[in-house]
């Protein structure tokens, strides 16, 4: 996390996709023409929508979609935290575990993997090798893994909600005021589900 504020340069935003369905990213794209406003305020430096392989340094805001379900998720989450001023837990999977965490009720993930990869495939069921990242014993909400600055619930958060929260954040950072108070958020901005 760098200490500089956003003054005097363009803001850098990123998105990250952990254990989620990408619905939150779809909702992000639903910003439609607002994306142009956004592009005027900031550069998108990382995310499923870019072709960047390594999480870059000095990011101002990262929207992280998805729960933490496997070891790759943990590593990406840590990289995000290490290089981002304001980490946003983006959508219900990141905030609560949500659908991704349904498997927690089933217990041992090894058993789950065996069911999916060995029992259920039509042909040649086999346990996955190192291509598939190791599952965590339990799916965790993002804030159980890294400290979070802003939470944006919703499944997915609506485009209006993303717009309201993100623009408020960017405006505040651009003005060098750090993370703004988000107490104004009402039902349109906060509701789970």
């Amino acid at each position: 996390m760098s200490e500089h504020n956003g003054e005097g340069r363009r803001l850098r935003i990123a998105t990250a996709w952990l254990g989620g369905c990408s619905g939150c990213h779809m909702s992000f794209l639903d910003l439609d023409e607002v994306l142009f406003d956004l592009a005027e305020k900031a550069d998108l430096v990382y995310g499923p929508l870019t072709d960047v392989k390594e999480f870059p340094p000095d990011v101002d805001v990262t929207l992280v979609e998805g729960a933490v379900a496997n070891q790759d998720n943990v590593e990406l989450a840590k990289a995000v935290r290490a290089n981002t001023r304001v980490v946003v837990s983006f959508g219900d999977c990141a905030v609560t575990g949500n659908v991704t965490s349904l498997r927690n009720a089933l217990g041992d993930p090894a058993e789950l993997v065996r069911r999916v990869y060995v029992e259920h495939p039509d042909i040649r069921g086999a346990m996955p090798t190192d291509v598939v990242p190791a599952l965590l014993p339990y799916v965790e909400a993002l804030h159980e893994v890294i400290p979070i600055d802003v939470y944006m619930p919703g499944c997915p958060p609506s485009a209006d909600r993303i717009k309201a929260t993100l623009l408020a954040l960017l405006d505040s950072l651009a003005a060098g005021e750090g993370i703004p108070s988000l107490d104004w958020r009402g039902p349109e901005d906060l509701r789970f589900g």
């Binding site: 943990v74 840590k78 965590l136 339990y138 965790e140 159980e144 890294i146």
Partner: peptide
């Protein structure tokens, strides 16, 4: 520390 994450730990 707050940044620590121990998956089998909770």
């Amino acid at each position: 520390e707050d940044e620590e994450f121990l998956p089998a730990g909770a």
